[in-house]
């Protein structure tokens, strides 16, 4: 399959990329890892007039932690997986990146693309909702920081303007007593999630859940936050009854659809079970376990 013809330009830096996008009359698309965009173009579901290749832009591929974790939008999934800070302190990100597509795709695919593509089946959105992340966007009017809760508008749609570029993901520093996990059920390696659940908890010194946040993959037109489940967990001990109640609430807040990956009813039960497991794993990690 061959994409429709398009114009191609290599951006020298972010400002250049913004200018190129602005000059395209809304026909431009950013080419980062290309692992979602190029298949869409081959199916001709996307026919951009101009591709702005940002792969040679410097300064978008760093991972740093000072005050917060900052991940450049162009960081490849394979590099996120191998990063020492991420491996030691943010295992939820390792959980997430390792279930995205397959190792070959992860050599190209970027974390920024996974978010900006805004596919509810993508895995980073739920994890970023659970991590209470922000994304940094740069456009002709300068830079803005967008809380992840406000980023996703609809399937394949974010609040990014056509000439704005996602440059960085900011994640609050892992607090003392904090832990998280992402679990995904997939039919095979490389498939999209039947369902996926990201859970983050902060435990207080009495062993209660001081704060919790839960994101769900493939549970609606965008990844969703299971706020009722979070409310149930807050202030409680992580006992079986509380976790079961939170998991039931998370399923109740989810709106999966029936497709080749299973009927909606089945997926709701998968979400319920994965939520329980993700909370347990998050609590275990928050209290020093793996």
């Amino acid at each position: 399959m061959i994409p429709a013809s398009f114009e191609y330009a290599v951006a020298r830096d972010v400002a250049d990329a913004i200018q190129l996008l602005g000059s395209s009359g809304g026909e431009g698309k950013v080419l980062a890892g290309g692992q979602s965009l190029i298949p869409l173009m081959k199916f001709r579901l996307a026919q951009p007039g101009l591709l702005v290749d940002i792969n040679r832009v410097k300064g978008l591929s760093d991972i740093r932690e000072n005050g917060e974790l900052r991940i450049g939008a162009l960081v490849r999934e394979a590099d996120l997986d191998m990063n020492a800070i991420v491996r030691e302190r943010y295992p939820i990100l390792v959980d997430t990146t390792r279930v995205i597509a397959d190792p070959l795709v992860r050599n190209m695919a970027t974390i920024g693309g996974n978010l900006a593509h805004a596919d509810p089946a993508n895995d980073h959105p739920a994890t970023m909702l659970a991590l209470r992340a922000s994304v940094v966007a740069r456009g002709p009017k300068g830079e803005r920081v967008i809380p992840i809760d406000e980023f996703f508008v609809d399937t394949f749609t974010t609040v990014l303007a056509p000439d704005e570029i996602l440059t960085e993901i900011r994640i609050p520093k892992r607090p003392a007593g904090g832990g998280g996990a992402y679990l995904k059920l997939e039919r095979k390696v490389g498939d999209f999630a039947i369902a996926g659940v990201a859970a983050m908890v902060v435990m207080d010194e009495k062993g209660r859940i001081a704060a919790a946040s839960i994101g769900v993959t493939n549970a609606g037109p965008t990844a969703i936050r299971a706020r009722k489940a979070e409310d149930i967990l807050r202030g409680q001990s992580p006992d079986d009854k509380t976790i079961a109640a939170a998991a039931a609430a998370a399923a109740g807040e989810s709106k999966p659809w029936s497709d080749l990956r299973g009927p909606a009813e089945y997926k709701l039960d998968v979400i319920r079970v994965l939520t329980q497991r993700a909370i347990r794993k998050a609590v275990a990690r928050a209290t020093g376990g793996k």
Binding site: G34, A78, L104, N107, M108
Partner: peptide, 13 residues
């Protein structure tokens, strides 16, 4: 040096 799926990379890249 990285293994990639060449059906999902443009030659210009």
């Amino acid at each position: 040096g990285r293994a990639v799926k060449s059906c999902t990379v443009f030659a210009v890249q």
